[in-house]
């Protein structure tokens, strides 16, 4: 069976879903179901003590069915990311962490130096580390040298929906990778998912494209199918592109 292996874990689904920005918890639950995602990302934040009983999405989930992937979103330094990761792990719910160290408020692009340092320290501390990174093949290599369990290059800026901007770099990263490559951030449509998977990515992580779609539940299903289609297309091996036509029907036996 074609599975996605990350560290000690194995998954059937290659679509990882973020849980932010949904209009309501009911739609979110239905979208998660429709996506058939097995890995869900979360952020770690202060509890609102003015309303501690506010409904929380985590409480709606059968936690045995999902692997939680908390992120270090909000961290601007390696130290902040490590602190958030430790807090997440102390929940006792997970040992995977999505390292995310942002270096620029406008573009939300990752800080490569802080990202590498946080990843190194968290690998040392025994986390299963999935690192959100720039689409930089050299940085992807450095991350693997410090032992990350997956590299997650962005397709384009977070939440931008611009799709894959640098196909060439993604291809370089995928060709050289010794760990799974998960295209994370910037996905806008099912076509972007299929494209990433056809390039040979091992998975896709997305959030906004589903959460902010007109119909998030239908879009979640579309993304699931696109990831599956792209994966199968990659495994099947596409034909080379040719400059001129080549007839699909026999050229012999023509009626004269």
């Amino acid at each position: 069976m074609d599975t996605l292996k990350i560290g000690p874990y194995e998954f059937r689904s290659r679509l990882l879903l973020g849980t932010g920005k949904f209009a309501d918890l009911d739609t979110q639950k239905k979208a998660v179901d429709a996506s058939e995602a097995e890995i869900l990302t979360f952020a770690v934040r202060r509890l609102n003590l003015d309303n501690p009983n506010e409904p929380n999405f985590l409480e709606k989930l059968d936690l045995k069915k999902y692997t939680l992937l908390p992120n270090t979103a909000g961290a601007q330094t390696a130290e902040e990311a490590v602190r958030i990761a430790r807090l997440a792990k102390a929940s006792g719910l997970c040992d995977m962490i999505k390292v995310e160290v942002i270096g620029d408020a406008k573009t939300l692009l990752p800080d490569p130096v802080g990202t590498l340092e946080a990843s190194r320290r968290l690998v040392e501390e025994g986390f299963i580390v999935l690192t959100y990174t720039n689409d930089d093949p050299v940085l992807a290599k450095r991350l693997q040298e410090v032992g990350v369990h997956a590299v997650m290059p962005g397709a384009s800026p977070i939440g931008s929906g611009q799709g894959i901007l640098n196909e060439n770099n993604l291809r370089f990263i995928i060709e050289d990778a010794k760990v799974p490559v998960i295209v994370d951030a910037g996905i806008g449509s099912p076509a972007d998912c299929a494209k990433a998977m056809e390039l040979g990515a091992d998975g896709v992580l997305l959030n906004t494209a589903v959460a902010q779609a007109k119909d998030p539940v239908l879009m979640a299903e579309a993304m699931k199918l696109a990831v599956e289609a792209g994966r199968k297309g990659f495994l099947a091996g596409r034909i080379p592109k040719k400059r001129y036509a080549s007839a699909s029907s026999p050229t012999e036996g023509m009626i004269e």
Partner: peptide, 24 residues
């Protein structure tokens, strides 16, 4: 968690209570 009963709180402590929220 196993230390919640025994961990004393003192005047001036900086305490954070965090949880998981939706995020990407």
């Amino acid at each position: 968690r196993s230390c919640y009963d025994t961990k004393a709180i003192a005047d001036g402590d900086r305490i954070e209570i965090v949880h998981f929220v939706g995020g990407g």
